[in-house]
Nucleic acid binder design. Structure first.
Length: 483
RNA sequence: CGAGGUGUAGCGCAGUUUGGUAGCGCACAUGGUUUGGGACCAUGGGGCCGGAGGUUCGAAUCCUCUCACCUCGACCA
C-alpha cells in the first residue's frame, strides 16, 4: 500500500507508532465493541458479535462431532460449593463477584457469580452419576463468566467474558488424559483452519497451570507486537473435583470409585487474537471463515442506469453461497466505501460500474494483499470461492511466517535479554524445571513460560543446559511476554 | 494496587499558563452539483466544559475533594 493510501486512514494510529493505541483504535473505529458504564465490562456490538457467532459455530460443530452435548448451568454458585476444592478457591477467590442480597433481604449464604463452573457442575454430576455404564459424561456449556480483573482491555481481559467450558467425566485416568489432549487438538485445528491463527501447543508449568488441575495444556498465539496470547486451555483435573464433590460410581469390579475429570475453554479473547495477528495499519483483516461479511459489493457511479440493478443481481446470486453485503448507500463516494470496508476487514471487495457491465466483468480486490483483478461475471461464484480459500490460506501462512521470524533461541540469560529486546517474540530455551529459574527469568526479562512443547516438538538446545542456572535441563520451553 | 496520562458537541481536539459572550475539524440534517481510491457548494441542528464544594462582581480556566477512562507495571481466559 502506498504512502498516500496510508494517510487516508487518519483515524487509526499506525502499529509501529503505538501498538496498544492501534488496537483500541481498531476495535472502536470498526465498531466491534464499546465501553459500558461499568468498568471492565464491554458491550459487544453487532459486527463483533457476528465474529463471535462464527467462531462459536466452528467450535460447536467440532464439539458435537467429537461426541459432546451442550447444557446450561446457573450463573450463581453458593459460597459453600466454591470453597470445596482448596487450590481452586485459593486461585479464584481474589477475583469473584458476590451477590449478598435478594431485593432488600440479606441472603443467608452469599452467592458468587461464576468465575468458571467446575464447582456447580460437579455438585450436579455427583447426583447424576451412579455407574460406569453412564460414562463418559461429555458436556459443554456456552455462557459468560465474571472475574473481577484489576486491569482490563477489550476482548483480551474483561471482567465478564463469553466463553465455552467443556466438563467431561471419565472412568479412567487414561481416558481423561485422552480427552484433554483430544480437545486441545480440536482447539488447534479450529484456531488454525478457521481463525487462521497458528498456535504453539504444549503444557503449562506448575506455576502457570489452572487452579485445581493436575495438568494444564495450552495453545499460544503470537501477536504482531511480539507478545503471546493464551488462546485456549485444556485441563486434566484428575480427581481434584470428583473427590471434593464426592462424585462416585460403581466401577466394573462393582466397587465405589472416583472418576476422572477434564475441562477445556476458549473465549472472546480469540477475537483479540484475530485482530492482533492479522490486522494492519488500515484496520481489521478478517479470515473469510469468520468474517461476518465475506464480500462487499460496491456499485460505482450508482446513479447511472442499470448499475444498482446489476449490483443487486450479483449480490443476490452470490448471497446464496457467501455472506455478502451490497453497499448502495447514497451520498458516499466509492473511495470512501473502499476505505470503510477495508478498515472493517472484509476479505473481498467487488466493484461494479458501467464499464464493467459493458464488458460483462467486475473488479475483485482482496484485503490481505490489496491486489485488484478484473474477472468475468460468468462463473463468478467459483472465482470468489477460490479467492476466499486463497485468502484464508494466505492469512495463515503470513501469520506463521511472522511467528517464525519472531522466534529466537537463547543459551543463557544475557542472550535471552538480547534476543528478546532485538526481536520481541517467542524465545526457545532449555529449562531445568525449577520454579526459581522460571521466576528469575520472569523477573529479569518480563517473559514467562508460555508452554513446554510435547515430545514430538521437543529439541535439545545448547547441550541441554538450563538458560537460567546452567544445570542439566531435559525440556525446552517457549518463553514470551504475554497478554 | 503502584506509576503516568486524559476528561470541553457523536468522534478528534484548541481554549486553562495570564478568569471576562464556548470554538475548530470531522460526523450529522436539508437542497443542489458529483461518483473507477476518503468529492464540493450553500444552509442548519447540536454543549450545565466528568461531578461536588470553594475563591470571585464574574470560573472550562484558580483552590480542595471526588469519579471515570486510557497506557505501563504486579495478577489472570
Amino acid at each position: 500500500m502506498g504512502k498516500k493510501d496510508k494517510n487516508q486512514v487518519k483515524e487509526i494510529t499506525p502499529m509501529d507508532v503505538d501498538f496498544p493505541q492501534w488496537y483500541t483504535d481498531v476495535i472502536s473505529k470498526t465498531e466491534l465493541c464499546d465501553y459500558s458504564p461499568v468498568k471492565g465490562f464491554m458491550v459487544i456490538r453487532p459486527y463483533g458479535y457476528g465474529i463471535w457467532e462464527l467462531i462459536q459455530k466452528h467450535f460447536d460443530k467440532r464439539f458435537k462431532e467429537t461426541g459432546h452435548e451442550n447444557m446450561y448451568f446457573p450463573l450463581l454458585i453458593p459460597e459453600s460449593l466454591l470453597t470445596k476444592e482448596a487450590e481452586h478457591v485459593e486461585g479464584f477467590a481474589p477475583e469473584v463477584a458476590w451477590v449478598t442480597h435478594g431485593g432488600e433481604k440479606e441472603l443467608a449464604e452469599r452467592l458468587c457469580v461464576r468465575p468458571t463452573s467446575e464447582t456447580i457442575i460437579c455438585s450436579m454430576y455427583s447426583k447424576w452419576l451412579n455407574s460406569y455404564r453412564q460414562l463418559p459424561f461429555l458436556y459443554n456449556q456456552w455462557c459468560s463468566v465474571v472475574r473481577w480483573e484489576k486491569t482490563t482491555r477489550p476482548f483480551l481481559r474483561t471482567s465478564e467474558f463469553l466463553w465455552q467450558e467443556g466438563h467431561t467425566i471419565h472412568e479412567t485416568a487414561e481416558e481423561a488424559q485422552e480427552e484433554t489432549m483430544k480437545m486441545l487438538g480440536v482447539y488447534k485445528e479450529v484456531a488454525e483452519n478457521m481463525l487462521a491463527l497458528p498456535v504453539m501447543v504444549g503444557q503449562k508449568s506448575e506455576k502457570e497451570k489452572f487452579a485445581g488441575a493436575d495438568a494444564t495444556y495450552t495453545m499460544e498465539a503470537l501477536m504482531h507486537d511480539g507478545q503471546a496470547l493464551q488462546s485456549g486451555t485444556s485441563h486434566n483435573l484428575g480427581q481434584h473435583f470428583t473427590k471434593a464433590f464426592d462424585i462416585t460410581f460403581l466401577d466394573r469390579n462393582n466397587e465405589q470409585a472416583y472418576p476422572f475429570h477434564a475441562s477445556w475453554g476458549v473465549s472472546t479473547r480469540l477475537i483479540g487474537g484475530i485482530i492482533m495477528v492479522h490486522g494492519d495499519d488500515s484496520g481489521l483483516v478478517l479470515p473469510p471463515e469468520i468474517a461476518p461479511i465475506q464480500l462487499v459489493v460496491i456499485p460505482v457511479a450508482q446513479h447511472k442506469e442499470g448499475v444498482l440493478d446489476k449490483a443487486w443481481e450479483i449480490g443476490k446470486a452470490l448471497g446464496k453461497a457467501f455472506r455478502i453485503k451490497v453497499d448502495d448507500q447514497d451520498g458516499y463516494s466509492p473511495g470512501w466505501k473502499f476505505n470503510q470496508w477495508e478498515m472493517k476487514g472484509v476479505p473481498i471487495r467487488l466493484e461494479i460500474g458501467p464499464r464493467d457491465i459493458e464488458n460483462n466483468q467486475c473488479v475483485l480486490a482482496r484485503r490481505d494483499t490489496g491486489e485488484k483483478v478484473s474477472v468475468s461475471l460468468d462463473g463468478l461464484e467459483e472465482t470468489v470461492k477460490a479467492l476466499l480459500a486463497e485468502i484464508q490460506q494466505n492469512l495463515f501462512d503470513k501469520a506463521q511466517k511472522m511467528r517464525e521470524e519472531k522466534t529466537s533461541v537463547a543459551a543463557d540469560m544475557d542472550q535471552f535479554k538480547t534476543v528478546l529486546k532485538e526481536n520481541p517474540g517467542f524465545v526457545k530455551a532449555m529449562w531445568c524445571g525449577d520454579r526459581a529459574c522460571e521466576d528469575k527469568v520472569r523477573e529479569e526479562t518480563g517473559a514467562s513460560i508460555r508452554c513446554i512443547p510435547f515430545e514430538e516438538e521437543q529439541e535439545t538446545l545448547f547441550e541441554g543446559k538450563c538458560v537460567c542456572c546452567g544445570k542439566p535441563a531435559e525440556k525446552m520451553a517457549y518463553f514470551a511476554r504475554a497478554y
